[in-house]
Amino acid sequence: MPIDDRKQRVLRAIVSLYSDDGEPVGSGLLAEHFGRAVSSATLRNEMAALTKLGLLEQPHTSAGRVPSAKGYRYYIDNLLDTSLKLSESEKRAAEQAFREMDYDPERLAQSAARALADWTGYTVVATTPKSEDMCIAHFEVMQVGRYTAAVLAVTGAGGVRTRTAKLDFELRPGDAERLAQTLNEHLTFRSAADVSQPLLHAAAEGMGAGGAVFYPVISAAYTLLKEAGRPNVYLEGQQNVLGYSPQEECLRTLMEFFGDEEAVKRFISPKSERTTVLLGDEMPEYRMPGVCILSKRYVAGGGLTGAIGIVGPTRMRYREVIPRLEYFALLLGQCMSGKTEHGQRQEE
Score class of each variant (00 low, 15 high):
residue 134 M to H: 12
residue 48 A to V: 01
residue 169 F to V: 10
residue 203 A to Q: 06
residue 37 A to C: 06
residue 28 G to Y: 14
residue 274 R to N: 11
residue 333 G to Q: 03
residue 148 T to G: 06
residue 347 E to D: 04
residue 312 G to E: 05
residue 290 G to F: 03
residue 316 M to V: 12
residue 99 R to K: 13
residue 8 Q to T: 11
residue 334 Q to L: 15
residue 16 S to G: 04
residue 253 T to G: 04
residue 313 P to N: 05
residue 19 S to K: 02
residue 219 S to R: 05
residue 96 Q to D: 14
residue 183 L to S: 14
residue 286 Y to R: 05
residue 268 I to T: 12
residue 211 G to S: 09
residue 279 L to C: 11
residue 96 Q to R: 15
residue 35 G to R: 14
residue 187 L to M: 09
residue 36 R to F: 02
residue 283 M to L: 15
residue 41 A to E: 11
residue 218 I to Q: 06
residue 115 A to Y: 03
residue 5 D to Y: 09
residue 39 S to R: 07
residue 303 G to R: 05
residue 305 T to E: 08
residue 142 M to F: 07
residue 329 A to W: 01
residue 76 I to T: 10
residue 337 S to I: 01
residue 180 A to G: 15
residue 219 S to I: 00
residue 39 S to G: 14
residue 155 T to A: 06
residue 271 K to S: 12
residue 268 I to D: 01
residue 257 F to P: 01
residue 20 D to G: 02
residue 256 E to N: 07
residue 238 Q to F: 04
residue 125 V to I: 14
residue 317 R to D: 15
residue 296 K to A: 12
residue 106 E to R: 02
residue 149 A to M: 08
residue 102 D to S: 13
residue 321 V to A: 06
residue 162 T to V: 04
residue 12 R to T: 11
residue 286 Y to S: 09
residue 174 G to L: 04
residue 308 I to K: 13
residue 162 T to E: 03
residue 120 T to I: 09
residue 103 Y to F: 14
residue 314 T to W: 02
residue 313 P to T: 10
residue 319 R to K: 09
residue 71 G to D: 00
residue 152 L to F: 14
residue 144 V to P: 08
residue 188 T to G: 08
residue 158 G to W: 00
residue 20 D to F: 00
residue 305 T to P: 00
residue 179 L to W: 11
residue 142 M to K: 11
residue 42 T to P: 07
residue 98 F to W: 13
residue 109 A to N: 13
residue 45 N to L: 08
residue 23 E to W: 01
residue 197 Q to C: 00
residue 117 A to M: 07
residue 50 L to Q: 02
residue 176 A to T: 12
residue 18 Y to G: 00
residue 206 G to F: 09
residue 148 T to A: 09
residue 34 F to Q: 11
residue 88 E to F: 14
residue 178 R to Q: 15
residue 299 V to I: 10
residue 198 P to K: 09
residue 245 S to T: 11
residue 32 E to I: 03
residue 208 G to E: 02
residue 197 Q to N: 08
residue 206 G to R: 03
residue 47 M to C: 07
residue 46 E to A: 01
residue 278 L to W: 05
residue 69 A to W: 02
residue 240 N to C: 01
residue 31 A to I: 10
residue 196 S to G: 04
residue 60 H to Q: 12
residue 325 L to F: 10
residue 199 L to G: 02
residue 121 G to F: 05
residue 168 D to R: 13
residue 180 A to F: 00
residue 294 L to I: 08
residue 75 Y to D: 02
residue 329 A to D: 08
residue 201 H to S: 15
residue 212 A to Q: 13
residue 31 A to H: 11
residue 40 S to D: 15
residue 52 K to H: 07
residue 152 L to T: 13
residue 220 A to D: 04
residue 50 L to I: 07
residue 158 G to E: 00
residue 87 S to K: 13
residue 225 L to D: 14
residue 182 T to F: 10
residue 327 Y to T: 13
residue 229 G to Y: 06
residue 269 S to E: 07
residue 297 R to S: 15
residue 107 R to A: 12
residue 209 A to D: 07
residue 276 T to H: 11
residue 61 T to S: 08
